[in-house]
Design a protein around this nucleic acid. Structure first.
Length: 424
RNA sequence: GUGGGUGUAGCUCAACUGGCAGAGCACCGGGUUGUGGCCCCGGGGGUCAAGGGUUCAAAUCCCUUCACUCACCCCA
């Protein structure tokens, strides 16, 4: 019986896996340049970690987590996001004790039991960045430019960065209430989803996509007028710094975040071509989260990028083949050992090598070598074996070099010889 | 969780108002070619997503289930 995969859990097969690899490499290089260090986190956490950080009422916690009872009865969950784990690791690993700033990034699978669609899987991958221990506007600006540089380096071209301030514990409740009151007034012009949001999560009213709701809320109070003095000054400074740092960011006063822990600066990268799931990355400040888990009052800011979505919008860089590639072909069974040995020495010298045994027609083996990207076919038959050499066939130039390679030569020598032939 | 669309060869897809399951690509063998590419000949491959129903006859019509996909919702 054939066993199928799990809904929403996908394999990443070649050649797509190569695009992921290239993208991750570029991202790592940008992260290194910003002096962020990798943290490798477990995929499993105690369920309460997410319940307490994301908010009990968010959909993620309420109905999308994969949770189960461990054998000793504790409730565990596959992580639906990375920030909660970072904060836990930060405290547990004693990083909070150091006075300085901690700059971390992570990369890996996240799990949410949603209905799959374009750009949304049940196991998906995020690259996340967290800067913990500073609350100055320059940190906000630096993290935002990091997101921009990261996306650009990965090959994303057409994306838009939006930013807003969602206030803090002093001013957001006031705005929330003002918004709620306004929404009650226009209740019957809102869709049923929005009507239920009025009490549950009024901030979310602002990013409903339906036209009637947008019209009904066009005159709704804006967060800008409700920000407290500290939040306003912080936000304005962030915007100034971003402008001076030449970041292309635009303010969207209706931008809100889905998770409860965000404070002040919130931002998002939107891209066309992703269907309805148009956010490639998003994040913001979460100044209260470390303290909520019993740590010292450490402010922090971070973001996460959806890698499936990034792969979708990133222009694939043309793969650069460095140096000659070879296919070693044994014409007869007695030559197979020599073929393997030759290939092995070439590989040690850095030449990408494929070995074709004695089975099948020469024609099909040559064709495979050609399609596999080989620049040379190294053919070993009875004659070659007896004379201790391999016939080299140039796949492009249609030329033979019958005495080109001595079978007993070492890898370096072999590679140099192939490079000479490739250029001459 | 709610809707819509689609399921035929490894891949991309045909098959008219129901009438013998096909093509291109890929794969394998052969011919030709300086030993591969182009060209020519041949070959292997299918539970027509699964189950049930209607009919002399179902890939085609009806019902059920499943999978994939897009959108709502949610979010990166």
């Amino acid at each position: 019986m054939k066993v199928s995969g799990v809904k929403g859990f996908h394999d990443i097969l070649p050649p797509e896996s190569a695009r992921w690899e290239a993208l991750e490499e570029k991202a790592r290089s940008v992260l290194r340049s910003y002096n962020f260090a990798e943290i490798r986190l477990p995929v499993l956490e105690r369920t309460e970690l997410f319940a307490r950080s994301l908010g009990e009422d968010t959909d993620i916690v309420a109905k999308e987590m994969y949770t189960f009872q461990d054998r000793d009865g504790t409730s565990l969950a596959l992580r639906p996001e990375g920030t909660a784990s970072i904060v836990r690791a930060y405290l547990e690993g004693g990083l909070a004790a150091s006075a300085g700033v901690v700059k971390l990034f992570y990369l890996g699978p996240m799990f949410r039991r949603e209905r799959p669609q374009k750009g949304r899987l049940r196991q998906f991958h995020q690259l996340g960045v967290e800067l913990i221990g500073r609350d100055d506007p320059a940190s906000d600006a630096e993290v935002v430019t990091l997101l921009e540089d990261l996306l650009r380096a990965a090959g994303a071209r057409a994306f838009r960065l939006e930013i807003n301030s969602v206030g803090d514990s002093a001013c957001r409740p006031l705005y929330r209430e003002a918004l709620r009151k306004y929404a009650v007034g226009v209740r019957d012009r809102l869709c049923t989803d929005c009507q239920s949001r009025i009490e549950r999560n009024p901030m979310r009213l602002l990013d409903c996509k339906k036209e009637p709701c947008r019209l009904a809320l066009a005159e709704a109070p804006s967060i800008e007028t409700y920000l407290c003095g500290d939040c306003r000054a912080h936000f304005e400074r962030v915007l100034t710094l971003l402008e001076e740092a030449r970041a292309s960011v635009s303010v969207n006063p209706r931008l809100v975040r889905g998770l409860d822990y965000y404070t002040r600066t919130a931002f998002e990268a939107l891209a066309p071509g992703l269907g309805a799931q148009n956010a490639v990355g998003g994040g913001g400040r979460y100044d209260g989260l470390v303290a909520r888990f019993g740590g010292p009052p450490k402010p922090a800011i971070g973001f996460a990028v959806g890698l499936e979505r990034l792969v979708m919008i990133a222009e694939a860089a043309e793969e650069q083949r460095s140096g000659p590639q070879a296919a070693v072909i044994a014409l007869v069974e007695e030559a197979e050992g020599s073929a393997l040995a030759l290939a092995r020495r070439l590989r040690c010298a850095g030449v990408v090598c494929e070995v074709e045994g004695a089975g099948g027609s020469l024609k099909s083996r040559m064709r495979r070598a050609d399609r596999g990207g080989a620049t040379f076919a190294l053919i070993i038959g009875e004659d070659e074996l007896r004379e201790g050499r391999a016939t080299v066939r140039d796949m492009r130039g249609k030329r033979d070099y019958s005495k080109a390679l001595r079978l007993e030569a070492n890898g370096e020598e072999l590679r140099r010889r192939l490079e000479e032939l490739a250029h001459g």
